[in-house]
Design a protein around this nucleic acid. Structure first.
Length: 616
RNA sequence: GGCUCCGUAGCUCAGCUGGAUAGAGCAGCUGACUUCUAAUCAGCAGGUCUCAGGUUCGAAUCCUGACGGAGUCACCA
């Protein structure tokens, strides 16, 4: 846990220099230390430009001063020179032996931070219970899961939660359609996964509704069109716009769904019972998908259990004069002081809206965990909603309102454009998972390295490789950016992919298993090559990458790092013999380098929710 | 229209708290497996970092403005 990486080390030394030579305190993190580009001589460089004016000196003079300082401190430098305003430093080879020994000593904890005593809640996934999980949820889940792992590794106590949108008009639609059409069918009787089963009835409802609406448009709806249309508005445009109003005011089947919602709210026993049954089917289906993805949660919050608390909180806020009531009875909050708008908190009929239950849920969570931070992993289409939610909590003076954070990620597009359920272009999560694993199997089944293991073990290897490809493909893109998901690219296993990284680990694993060397401590007998130093410098930077990924809420940093490291290792592997190295010193050095690299690769992928196969 | 985000190679993406000659992967072309796992490696080719100004020793990165794309501005979630 005490590992200090080389960049931080040099920053600290430079700060100490400025303090000693100029009696100036310069914050260490502002000192610009970089790993030197490959084609320039040296390991690290300190950028001197920022200090020239301030200390009225020139690069050469300042550089020389720092060099003298470092020499006096007995820093093991092999070379130090000033080049065009940069102080370029090369450590002695033996310095890296010591660093590698340290990294090895940390074992699988290398890169982690000691607990900082903070509790962080990460909310992710959070599906509706009326349809199965799709590609959009997968990105959400992978970001949420990975972020949780990274934060935990970086020293926080993490609780993974979801808010399940288990009530409301959507699930009632599925229930109405089931009652009309199912004739008692169940997921078991039809051999369909529960969430898909319920989702099918949701689709059936929409079909019935659409037919009813279309019929109406050429009958009674015509008069409505004529009397309400805007100037020059086409029939098509009008009826598109009018759909919600039709649903609420005219639709027969819409009325059935709304009545069911009212019966639900008033606790009508038969409705509650059907609701429980159908949601139960959905949860069984979800569980299967979570298991396939290898994720789980510490606690599930249900909207049906938190919305009442949201309502009463809003009503109390009205009494406390934080909110106001309009003439029609709806309750609003004025967020202009936060640069936002008026926002509705309760409908005129007293029922709750989206933000209402979010208020209740946040309070419930704070009661449960007294969190230091609560992170909501939700797509960027809801940016405004979360601004409004957080501002409302602030206005209501909740102590934790500044500890709420919206991890806003970009939505997933297909090469053909946006996913649209109406056009059937939504990529189903279960299908996708099945497909990537099948692809991995197709690639791996003839591998000579998988012949000696059992069928079960082989299946596990296909699993890890397929999911590794899928997860890496999604997580390598910066969370906040919108991404294009090309299904054919997502199953690629060459180049910048999960399997490429897994392959580097498998190679290491294979070499280590053939080695006869037990415990190793290096003592500088071997001089590292440049390529080996590239790997050493990279593994040294791992703790820094983890910190960055955590503080920027972005798993893609870890993803790119894992690839960079695998790439450097593959290159090293080609250029150097390990088990049959020139000398024993070279052999043990390379073995230790390989082992630490393997550790870091495994940890990196674990932080992304990807498991390593032992062979492939 | 207001606000927010995005624009880097044919495609998918890094680099953005200012640093050295803008990088990967895929796709294309050429090579390397009797040798520790070739899901690998080496090489070739591919760029007006959307555009125009500004800030400065230095700008893909920061500022301003345009252009292009997306999201949002619901008594939906």
């Amino acid at each position: 846990m005490g590992y200090q990486n080389n960049i931080a080390y040099l920053q600290q030394l430079t700060a100490a220099f400025f303090e000693e030579a100029y009696e100036q305190l310069i914050p260490t993190h502002t000192i610009n230390v970089n790993v030197i580009a490959k084609d320039i001589d040296g390991d690290y460089s300190i950028v001197l430009f920022p200090y020239l004016k301030r200390f009225s000196t020139n690069p050469q003079a300042l550089g020389d001063q720092i060099i003298q300082f470092l020499k006096a401190k007995k820093i093991p430098l092999q070379k130090a020179e000033v080049v065009k305003g940069f102080l370029n430093l090369t450590f002695e080879s033996a310095f890296y032996d010591a660093r590698l020994n340290e990294m090895f000593g940390e074992g699988s904890a290398f890169g982690s931070s000691a607990s900082n005593g903070k509790t962080v809640i990460v909310e992710f996934c959070s599906p509706n219970t009326n349809k199965p999980i799709h590609l959009g949820h997968i990105r959400n889940i992978l970001i949420g899961w990975s972020m949780s792992s990274i934060l935990e590794f970086a020293g926080r106590a993490v609780k993974k939660v979801q808010i399940i949108n288990d009530r409301g008009i959507a699930i009632c639609k599925s229930m109405v359609a089931w009652k009309k059409l199912a004739d008692g069918a169940t997921p078991d009787s039809q051999s369909i996964k529960g969430d898909h089963f319920v989702g099918n009835y949701y689709v059936q409802f929409e079909k019935l509704f659409q037919k009813e609406y279309t019929d109406w448009q050429s009958g009674a709806g015509l008069d409505v069109y004529k009397s309400l249309k805007k100037e020059d508005e086409s029939k098509e445009g009008f009826f598109k716009r009018y759909k919600n109003t039709y649903f609420n005011e005219y639709s027969q089947i819409g009325k059935e769904a709304r009545e069911m919602l009212q019966q639900w709210e008033s606790g009508e026993e038969s409705v509650i019972s059907l609701w429980k049954t159908m949601n139960g089917w959905v949860y069984d289906g979800f569980d299967t998908t979570y298991q396939a993805l290898g994720v789980n949660f510490d606690k599930l919050y249900y909207e049906s259990e938190t919305y009442l608390r949201g309502k009463s909180t809003v009503e109390q806020g009205l009494v406390d004069d934080l909110f106001y009531r309009k003439e029609d009875g709806s309750i609003w909050v004025d967020l202009e002081e936060y640069g936002l708008d008026q926002k509705i908190l309760l409908r005129s009929d007293g029922t709750s809206v989206y933000i209402t239950q979010d208020i209740g849920t946040a309070l419930q969570r704070y009661d449960d965990y007294a969190f230091d931070q609560c992170i909501y992993v939700v797509a960027d289409e809801q940016d405004y909603h979360f601004q409004a939610l957080f501002a409302t909590m602030k206005k209501a003076k909740y102590s934790f309102s500044d500890q709420l954070y919206h991890l806003s990620y970009g939505m997933v597009d297909l090469p053909s454009g946006k996913m649209k359920s109406r056009e059937g272009t939504v990529v189903d999560a279960d299908d996708l998972i099945t497909e990537v694993i099948a692809e991995a199997k197709a690639n791996a089944k003839d591998s000579p390295n998988l012949q000696e293991i059992t069928e079960e073990e082989r299946a596990e290897v296909y699993n890890r490789i397929g999911l590794g490809a899928l997860k890496y493909f999604i997580l390598k893109v910066a969370a906040k950016k919108r991404m294009t998901f090309d299904p054919s690219q997502s199953v690629d296993m060459q180049g910048q992919t999960g399997p490429y990284i897994q392959n580097a680990y498998v190679r290491i694993n294979s070499v280590l298993s053939k080695s006869d060397v037990d415990s190793i401590t290096l003592s500088g007998e071997y001089t590292w090559s440049n390529q080996e130093k590239n790997v050493l410098i990279l593994i040294d930077s791992f703790p820094r990458v983890v910190q960055e990924s955590a503080s920027e809420y972005d798993p893609s940093k870890v993803a790119h790092y894992a690839f960079d490291l695998a790439k450097e290792y593959h290159k090293f592997y080609h250029e150097h013999r390990i088990l049959t190295a020139e000398t024993d010193a070279a052999k043990v050095s390379r073995l230790l380098l390989s082992e630490v690299t393997g550790n870091v690769l495994k940890t990196s992928l674990r932080l992304l929710g990807i498991e390593m196969p032992e062979r492939m």
